[in-house]
């Protein structure tokens, strides 16, 4: 339970948002050329980090926009919020 500072609406309760999981997993440019191992990596394998993790969040009960969050999963503290398409910050 924590607050998220939506870059478009301001600080709101986490329950207004939906977690989109790990960020920066790029969709394969040439899907037909991927082998099964590469597909498994893209679809299923996750870092699931205990510590600072880069994630996508969606303000589902608000502006419905997506953005990125750098959050420490060991204490739920949000370190940085940045927009989609931006590179992850160095923390």
């Amino acid at each position: 339970m924590f607050l998220i500072n939506c870059p478009y609406c301001g600080e709101r309760d986490q329950s207004e948002f939906i977690s989109g999981g790990e960020a920066h997993i790029a969709r394969p440019k040439q899907p037909t050329e991927l082998n099964d191992d590469q597909w498994a990596e893209y679809l299923f394998m996750r870092k699931n980090i205990k510590g600072i993790q880069f994630e996508r969040w969606n303000h589902a009960h608000g502006c419905r926009k997506w953005f990125n969050v750098a959050r420490d999963t060991s204490n739920d503290k949000i370190e940085k919020i940045y927009k989609m398409g931006e590179q992850p910050p160095k923390l």
Binding site: M1, D13, Q14, S15, I18, S19, G21, N48, I49, K50, Q53, E55, T73, S74, N75, D76
Partner: peptide, 13 residues
């Protein structure tokens, strides 16, 4: 909860 967390707490909602 819908998000990854290692806090052993969880949200009130």
């Amino acid at each position: 909860d819908s998000y990854v967390s290692y806090t052993q707490k969880g949200s009130f909602n």
